[in-house]
């Protein structure tokens, strides 16, 4: 362990975080795709699908799908943080829904862990559709840090 360079450790962290996403059955079932993962944060996308619609009149995706995406993306950001968590779980998550996501468009979430202590990680996340200037939703959460 002591011979590992910081680069190797960072790469290992990313691998753990990537696996963390890929083995989550619910993330796979929703069709999430991990686009980016660095010590700075995570980006995950989720294509629109008819069976995820929450309002049959408009075709807008359900808020619960956005919650699952933000929660997963936030968890990935915690796992990828350089201080190294072995595992994490959500303590609390607040989502603000600013506007309806445009039907048919992929939703992309970005999360970053802006503060971490020995046992708690504080995370902020955003969700966007094709119009990146106007976020669909924002989230703020607290997560456990299992060392």
């Amino acid at each position: 362990m002591s011979e590992a360079s910081p680069e190797d450790e960072l790469e290992q962290r990313r691998r753990i975080a990537r696996q963390f996403i890929e083995v989550i059955p619910h993330a796979r079932a929703l069709g999430m795709h991990l686009d980016q993962l660095t010590g700075e944060g995570a980006e995950i996308s989720l294509p629109w699908r008819e069976d995820l619609v929450g309002d049959p009149r408009s075709g807008v995706i359900h808020g619960g799908v956005i919650s699952a995406l933000m929660d997963t993306c936030s968890g990935a950001a915690v796992m990828a943080h350089p201080t190294g968590a072995r595992s994490t779980a959500t303590i609390d998550l607040r989502i603000d829904y600013m506007r309806a996501a445009t039907p048919g468009q992929t939703i992309r979430a970005k999360a970053s862990c802006y503060h971490i202590t020995r046992s708690v990680a504080f995370v902020r996340a955003w969700a966007m559709d094709d119009d990146e200037a106007r976020p669909v939703a924002s989230a703020t959460g607290a997560f456990t840090v299992e060392r």
């Binding site: 059955p25 619910h26 796979r28 808020g63 919650s67 997963t72 968890g75 595992s87």
Partner: peptide, 24 residues
Amino acid sequence: DQKLIGNPMLPAIHGGVTAAFLEV
């Protein structure tokens, strides 16, 4: 259902599923 799992090691229901269930 298996597709609701968020942590296969424990296993535990995904936090997003819990949020979605409560919102629905």
